Computed example of a mutant assay.
Amino acid sequence: MRALTVIPGRAGSAAVIEVPEPALADGPVLVRTHAVGVCGTDEEIVSGSYGWAPAGEERLIIGHESLGEVMEAPADSGFKPGDLVAGVVRRPDPVPCLACGAGEWDMCRNGRYTERGIKQRHGFASERFRIEPDFLVPIAPELGLLGVLMEPASILAKAWEHVERIGQRARWAPQTVLVTGVGPIGLLAAMMGRQRGLEVHVLARSPDGPRPRLARALGATYHAGEVTDLPFHPDVVLECTGVPEVVVAAMQQLAPAGICCLAGISSGARRICLDGGTAERQMVLGNEVLFGSVNANMRHFRAAAEALARADRGWLGGLVTRREPLDRWQSALQRQADDIKTVIDFTL
């Protein structure tokens, strides 16, 4: 079968090659791949700056945002042929640490976890893959190709869960939410905020285009400009750009007792210039919280499945702006001006 692979750490090594059929050791459920989403992590792996191959192997099959159809499954697995599914990315470490032992592998304490398509486990960018039933999530059939949004949606499901858990430290009734960034992560964050009945504001640079239109179509208020120009102080911020200046401004814009979740990742090329004393004073005196969130466990994938099933199909369809066949994987990894979510479609 064909798969998109890289030699981790080696730029220019990405290639579609013939690989063996997926090993039974990967799991008893056999899945035919329909699509994999492309994101910045895949770009970093292909560029040679990230990624680890499985032990004893040179190449890594990439792809961690999956959508597939069950071909074979044990009778007691909870799945049957024809089911539309997505695979969970991370696996608990073998020790396990306290978090992994409780099923919270997204919060692994010792870093010995593995990840499909990223760290020491083959990913989903192959014509077929095998997986364990305990790491497989059913997708509503009516979602079709849009089920490929499951993995990024799980990241936001976790972020929202943690925001709400932190909010319960005191009597809490949030009203306003600020989402910075209008990529797929930002737009899904805004969607989940609207599903919670909150007043959602979305901020980015561009005043026009498909991304602002999608934000407004949710019923969110769209702002083009700087965080410091906003005429309000949000109760919740979901920072989805990873841009250092935006991170700092978002922290400083919080309302008293506000919560800021950092869901975007900086490239590391730019440093945050922060007056630590001023920021610390504001956060202490305002009972504010700043935290980071990455990855997701099974609970978050299930919450993401529910959120996607509740979403307007037409709106979700606007997130997937480009589909490329496997043979055109290079094009899929080259960002275009109006791209939001690009997917490699194995059915083309």
Rank of each mutant, 00 (worst) to 15 (best):
H233L: 03
A296H: 07
A307G: 07
G82T: 14
E161T: 09
P133A: 08
S266D: 04
D93T: 12
Q334D: 07
E44Q: 13
P74T: 11
L319C: 09
L149F: 10
A263R: 01
Q282M: 15
A25P: 03
E199R: 15
K341Y: 07
L319I: 13
Q253K: 15
I17Y: 02
H223P: 12
E132L: 11
R302L: 10
L145E: 06
A75L: 15
G209E: 00
S206M: 00
A204P: 10
G48R: 05
R121G: 04
S331N: 12
M192E: 11
V19F: 10
A3P: 00
V163Q: 07
Q336Y: 03
K119E: 05
P207R: 02
L316V: 12
E142K: 15
A102F: 05
T5A: 09
V88T: 12
V89E: 08
R130H: 13
Y113I: 08
A332N: 07
A257H: 14
G123A: 07
G103W: 00
G68K: 09
Q252N: 10
A224Y: 05
L188M: 13
T321A: 03
I155C: 14
P74N: 11
A220S: 07
A3G: 13
L218Q: 00
P231Q: 00
E226P: 00
G264F: 07
D327T: 15
E21I: 00
V31W: 05
G219Y: 07
A3T: 11
E72I: 12
A250V: 08
V177M: 08
A217G: 08
E21G: 06
G40Y: 04
I62P: 07
V202K: 05
V31R: 10
F79C: 01
A279G: 13
M107R: 14
G40H: 10
S331C: 06
E199K: 13
G209M: 01
I265C: 05
F129E: 03
W329V: 12
R10V: 15
V248D: 13
V289Q: 14
L308D: 01
E57T: 10
G286M: 06
A55S: 12
I185Q: 02
C273H: 14
E72S: 08
S154K: 06
M251S: 10
A257M: 08
V247H: 02
G292K: 00
M150P: 11
E199Q: 13
H223N: 08
E306W: 05
D275K: 06
R169M: 05
L156S: 03
G167E: 03
G111M: 08
D229C: 01
M1F: 10
G242K: 12
R90Q: 14
C260L: 15
G82Y: 08
T228N: 09
G219E: 02
A102N: 13
R109L: 15
V200G: 11
E288W: 01
